[in-house]
Simulated assay, not measured.
Amino acid sequence: MKIGIPQEVKNNENRVALTPSGVLSLVQKGHEVYVETGAGIGSGITDDMYKESGARIVSTASEAWKQELIVKVKEPQKEEFALMQEGQLLFTYLHLAAEKEVTEALLEKKITGIAYETIQTKNDELPLLTPMSEIAGRMSVQIGVHFLEKINGGKGVLVGGVPGVNKANVMIIGGGIVGTNAAKIAIGMGANVTLLDINIQRLRELEVMFDGKIKTLASNEYNISQQVRDADLLIGAVLIPGAKAPRLVTDEMVQSMEKGSVIIDVAVDQGGSIETIDHITTHEHPIYEKHGVLHYAVANIPGAVPKTATYALTNMTLPYIERLATYGLEAYAQQNVAFSKGINTYNGHIIHEAVAKEFDKRFIDVEGLFA
């Protein structure tokens, strides 16, 4: 199969879809890989490194986009819509429930859109989302600490405090991969950490995991409102695979926070769970202030650490890319249920139920897709 790797064009997105080792593995299996010149520079990967691995370097995005299978990191941007070829395969993070324009573009071009974030194993794990969730969770605390500093607009609180002075209160909503990794870093920095989740069994696991160094609460409106009021740093880490994140923190709750507090919504690429986060920001202009509270709403947090993120991503995506390229969409989807759940659009139709529900459209069940 001919595989195209275009350069990412999203604001400050420095990741690239495949490392040279990933390219080499595909080439050795008989596939052709076309990499747009400069695609890997942000991740410290040169064109020569790709050439040595057997890639063919193309000088324009349009050449990369002409291939049968396009592998990316982030959803197509508006300027890429015209480059998409009717009927081709697109394998990337899509987050379609929060991206109406992207969804419509994929349907119009009859693109088979396969989303990393909805590939789901029988034990409900999201293997291709996990490494970026780990990074985003850890970075959320790192970022929050930065903006809590007075010189960066925050209230001027040292997260771990010092003897005789209060530590910062870090509140995390969601006990999945993002929330767990955020808690790990926040605890390590000495903060008072409270984590809320609707799954009580998960809270039990976290209590054991962190040896009682974390406070856990059932996630409900009352508990959320009480904890938001006292939070110095609030991290939204809620995920419903393929669907928009539920709005859990209201405008009124945010107004109760002390001026200079910080909110980071890692789920903003799925619509976000904080009502006062009404638009996505970029690494170039990451924050805005509302009710005196700093809001961080960057949708591609791992793009800030591409030398880590690109390699972590390829570790997980490569086996799926290899099998998709080798067996083709239909055969691979029939033999691998987890992969089949990644198919969001196909031949002008929505295949993922949560996406169809968001846009009030009919969907085709993936089980009957190739019947």
Rank of each mutant, 00 (worst) to 15 (best):
I151A: 13
I198P: 05
K184R: 15
A168H: 07
V178P: 06
Q201H: 15
A191H: 11
I143C: 09
V71N: 04
Q201N: 15
V162E: 08
S133T: 13
G137R: 01
I198L: 14
L106S: 02
F147W: 14
V165T: 07
L196E: 01
V193Q: 06
G176F: 08
I200V: 15
G144C: 08
R138L: 06
K74S: 05
L69A: 02
V141E: 08
Q77I: 12
L90Q: 08
G156M: 05
E149V: 02
D124Y: 13
E117T: 12
H146I: 03
I172Q: 05
K184H: 13
A191R: 11
L107A: 03
L83A: 10
L69I: 15
L94P: 02
T194P: 05
P76M: 00
L83S: 04
S140F: 09
E101T: 14
E80F: 03
H146F: 13
L89E: 01
Q77N: 06
G87V: 09
P127K: 10
M84S: 06
V193R: 06
T194A: 11
Q142D: 11
V71L: 07
K109L: 03
A182T: 13
Y93R: 10
I111M: 10
V102W: 04
I187V: 11
R138Y: 09
A82N: 14
K72D: 07
V162P: 00
K184V: 04
L195N: 09
A183P: 10
P76S: 00
Y116E: 07
K72Q: 01
N152H: 15
V102Q: 12
L83D: 05
E125A: 15
K72R: 11
I111G: 03
L69N: 01
T180C: 06
E99G: 08
E117K: 02
E80D: 14
I177T: 15
A168M: 08
G144M: 07
A186M: 09
V71D: 05
M139Y: 06
N169I: 01
A115V: 12
P76Q: 01
V145L: 08
E79I: 10
G190V: 11
A183W: 13
G87Y: 07
V162K: 07
K122A: 13
M132Y: 08
N169G: 05
N166C: 03
A115R: 08
P131K: 06
L89Y: 11
K72E: 00
K167H: 04
G176S: 11
K72T: 00
I114P: 13
V157E: 12
Y93C: 11
E134W: 03
N192P: 08
L195S: 10
F81L: 02
T103S: 13
L158C: 07
G156Y: 01
I200T: 15
K74P: 00
I151M: 12
I70K: 00
Y116I: 05
G137E: 06
A191P: 13
A168T: 09
L96R: 02
V73F: 05
K110S: 10
M139L: 15
K74M: 03
V159Y: 00
V162H: 04
Q77C: 07
